Simulated scan of single mutants.
Amino acid sequence: MLDVFGNLSAFWEIMSLLPSAKLALADGTVYSGTAFGATGEVFGEVCFNTSMTGYQEILTDPSYCGQIVAMTYPLIGNYGVNTEDVESRGLSIRGFIVRELCRQPSNFRSTDTLDSYLRKANVVGIEGIDTRSLVRRLRIRGAMTGVLSSTDLDDASLINKAQSSPSIVGQDLVAEVTPAKPFNWSEGLSDLGASGTSLVSTDTPERHVVAIDYGMKWNILRHLKAINCRVTVVPATTTAAEVLALKPDGVFLSNGPGDPRPLKYAIDTIRDLLGNVPIFGICLGHQLLGMACGAEIYKLKFGHRGANQPVLNQDTGRVEITSQNHGFAIASETLPKVLEVTHLNLNDRTIEGLRHREFPAFCVQYHPEASAGPHDSGYLFETFHQMMTKA
């Protein structure tokens, strides 16, 4: 028994030597904790994700550009990080918040600790704060701007910075994460992946897909490869004429960060593509397709972020458990007659899927390619393949 208490005493002594960090919100609330990852100070929209697993996929998802993410699950880092679960070229997330960081991970796939991973990627983290209190505040008051710092620990100073930092509303964050030039994609799903489709990838692709990258997760590209497609990825600013010059059988509109309303260049491109080629959009791509058809966007109070969102497929009556990450949604009262609602969120009745009544085009707000799961909606990639075949 003395050994147990002795070890605990040594543990807390070590913890007391770790650097401090603070999180300040724009409403004047300050949380104190322990720093991990990189040293520094960042600002961004503070939001939360309810997933129990998949923290590496969340960290490498470009859709989190401009945001400081809190995990609601209390223990993060227990299976480490690896080279297979990466979703982009680098980390675009501004900061990371956890209740308890596991500093000694155990998993046969692990190649590094979460602490080391964030330090190398220059991402600031904080642990040891009451994440339940933080999430409750965000649910009641809505997502808000915050400052996370391990260098400035003065409450008044941090609150002032949080209140003067810009909101993500009205910013073009896609410009920070879209690739500089086109490239071809060749990687398929790993042995741990799940495509949700009966199609089998071969050495001779049946279809050519041009994927417009607004901040795309790589598992989307792996799924497109898995349905036997040759994939060309192009930057967000690519015009409709440039896309069509590549002679695609279909066009994919990717996920991405922030407010879709400043992305006039993307909306114009999609509007010009409609009717010329089959289109499939996910997340930000869903919002942009809706706007290209005349719908309007509004900001959700605290967004949908997690791997447990129930969605009703109105065609089949089936409820799908989905992975989601978005802070904006299509306003149902602005929906043009040319668009038909195919999926609804059962928590708040927001629009989760749309289909064009005249042209071969459809989209979903959630993530059917979710690497960490669930995989209920993987069939949508086969639906896209069938649409291209029919076209």
Rank of each mutant, 00 (worst) to 15 (best):
S157R: 10
R103Y: 05
C47Q: 05
S106Y: 10
G128C: 06
D155M: 09
L118N: 12
Y64P: 03
E340V: 00
C47P: 01
A211H: 02
E358S: 14
T72I: 08
A236G: 15
L114Y: 08
S190G: 13
Y79C: 11
L153T: 04
L59Y: 06
E187A: 12
R137I: 06
R207E: 00
S133A: 15
G353S: 00
Y379S: 04
R103N: 10
D249P: 07
V98L: 07
G37A: 08
L344I: 05
Q163W: 02
E242C: 10
T60P: 01
T334P: 07
R109Q: 07
C47K: 08
P205K: 02
H375V: 04
E206L: 11
P360K: 08
S165L: 05
A24M: 07
F108G: 03
T29P: 03
G256Q: 03
R305G: 02
A10G: 14
D85C: 02
S133D: 15
L263H: 03
P278Q: 05
I76W: 05
V124S: 03
T197Q: 04
I14F: 13
A241T: 15
Y298C: 10
T322N: 02
Q67P: 02
T350R: 00
H326W: 09
L91W: 13
V42W: 14
H367M: 08
M15Y: 11
I68M: 03
L2F: 13
G6M: 07
Y64W: 13
T269H: 05
N122A: 09
G294S: 04
N78L: 09
P19G: 03
D115V: 12
A236P: 06
W218I: 02
V319L: 02
R349I: 01
G193Y: 11
L199E: 05
S190C: 00
A24K: 03
K22E: 11
L114R: 13
A241D: 13
H326A: 07
G294W: 12
A211P: 01
P260S: 02
D27P: 06
E57P: 00
G256C: 11
G146A: 14
T111I: 14
Q163L: 06
R355T: 01
T204Q: 11
T237P: 02
S198D: 09
S149R: 14
G327E: 09
Y214Q: 05
L288I: 14
E296C: 03
F362M: 06
R349M: 06
L138N: 04
T389K: 10
E87Q: 15
L224W: 15
